[in-house]
Design a protein around this nucleic acid. Sequence first.
DNA 1: CGTCTTGCCTAGATGTTCTAGGGGAAAGAA
DNA 2: TTCTTTCCCCTAGAACATCTAGGCAAGACG
Lengths: 110, 110
Amino acid sequence: MPTTKAELLQGTLDLLILKTLAAGPLHGYDVARRIQQRSDDVLVVEEGSLYPCLYRMEEKGWIAAAWGKSENNRRAKFYSLTRAGRKQLEEETAIWERVCRAITLVLETA
Amino acid sequence: MPTTKAELLQGTLDLLILKTLAAGPLHGYDVARRIQQRSDDVLVVEEGSLYPCLYRMEEKGWIAAAWGKSENNRRAKFYSLTRAGRKQLEEETAIWERVCRAITLVLETA
DNA sequence: CGTCTTGCCTAGATGTTCTAGGGGAAAGAA
DNA sequence: TTCTTTCCCCTAGAACATCTAGGCAAGACG
């Protein structure tokens, strides 16, 4: 039996992507890989979740896309945070901390 | 402007209910109220989410229901944790801690 | 009697993520 | 050369949880 279910917490993908892009532009494939690496392989972003999410975020103006070449000389679409994206990152970080604290509160109540 | 969006984190409702019932049987309405209170009004469980969730959990054998009278002398359905429910609570708590830690890891990466 | 509160319930909409595909192009092996 | 692997992008539809927006019954309280 593997580690079983519960990869991604619904509603946190935007935040994870925004944060991952905060350090500088990355292409989509790389965004997913970094989230997985930095979470010690706990969070796995499927491509079927990743790309639609990137489009939604682009439509909302949080990120901007530009075609380029990857470090492996492949055609790749690079995403970078917009000003609105940075603001969104701040907001979502605050919400996460608030909700996370709230859940912890409930779990700690004897 | 109010506190805006993001009440409940999708996927955490089962855990919150299980934990709330761990201290003893409660009726549905009360479960929602306690989650809200204990989270300092951050987590609000709508009734349209609550009851379907309770049914799912009952079907899975995590909780058991019994009709009774509330402290206000109203007809109410009391839910209590089964043995399987306690096991599930342990599992979901572990998953929550793992995922929460993972997200925090990503958010803390410079 | 009328209204408020408690408490349970449901159908349908909404939104996110996953499953399960497909495809092209560079790199490396045979 | 050809074959296979890896990288990188993309999409349609299913699955699932939560919310919206209602409805209903009965006790409390004026």
